[in-house]
Amino acid sequence: MANIFSGEFIEAMNIRNLLEIENIEVFTVNEYMSSIEPWVVSPGGFKPLILQVNDEDFEKAKIVVEDYRSGKLEVGK
């Protein structure tokens, strides 16, 4: 398993959806606690939710995340 993203709940769910559209299995770490008490799972509550993918999907997932961050991919378009 490899961490592919860490951040706030809403953005993480957007990225998770984009990854799943590409048939990449995504695992969510701290999904519930990041919403309830983010400061408990990360210092200062900063980037509390972590998305992980299988090692063999990492490169493909990395491209999806980079495209999302650069504005090439948007949820709902």
Rank of each mutant, 00 (worst) to 15 (best):
I36P: 01
N14S: 10
V29F: 06
P43T: 13
D67Y: 13
G44L: 12
V29C: 06
I4C: 02
R69Q: 11
Y68R: 04
I21D: 02
Y32H: 13
G45F: 13
P38E: 12
G76R: 13
D55W: 05
K62M: 09
L51S: 02
L73N: 04
P38K: 14
K60I: 12
R69L: 10
N17M: 15
K72M: 07
D55S: 07
I10R: 07
S6W: 01
E37L: 10
M13T: 00
I21R: 14
N14T: 01
G71E: 08
Y32D: 09
E56T: 01
E59V: 05
V41W: 10
S34Q: 03
M33E: 02
A2S: 12
I15R: 00
P48I: 12
L19I: 09
V64I: 13
I4Q: 04
F9M: 05
I63K: 15
E20F: 11
I4K: 01
Y68E: 07
I63D: 13
E56Q: 09
E11N: 03
N3R: 06
G7K: 04
M1N: 03
I24K: 07
F5N: 00
P48R: 04
V75Q: 09
V65I: 11
E8W: 02
N23R: 15
A2C: 02
E37Y: 15
Y68G: 08
R16K: 15
I36W: 11
E8F: 01
A12F: 10
E25P: 00
E22Y: 08
W39M: 08
D67F: 15
E22A: 15
R16P: 02
A61E: 06
V65K: 05
F9E: 02
R69K: 14
S42K: 10
A2Q: 10
G45A: 03
G44A: 03
S6C: 07
N14I: 05
P38A: 13
S34I: 04
D57W: 07
V26Q: 03
L18P: 00
S70E: 15
N14E: 13
Q52N: 11
E11C: 01
G44P: 06
K60G: 05
K77V: 05
G45T: 15
S42L: 04
R16D: 07
E8N: 06
G76E: 09
N17G: 04
G71F: 15
P38F: 12
R69S: 06
Y32E: 11
Y68K: 08
I36M: 09
N54F: 05
F46D: 14
E8H: 08
N30P: 00
P48H: 08
N54D: 03
V41Y: 07
E11G: 01
I50T: 12
Y32P: 00
L73K: 14
E11S: 01
K60E: 13
G45D: 14
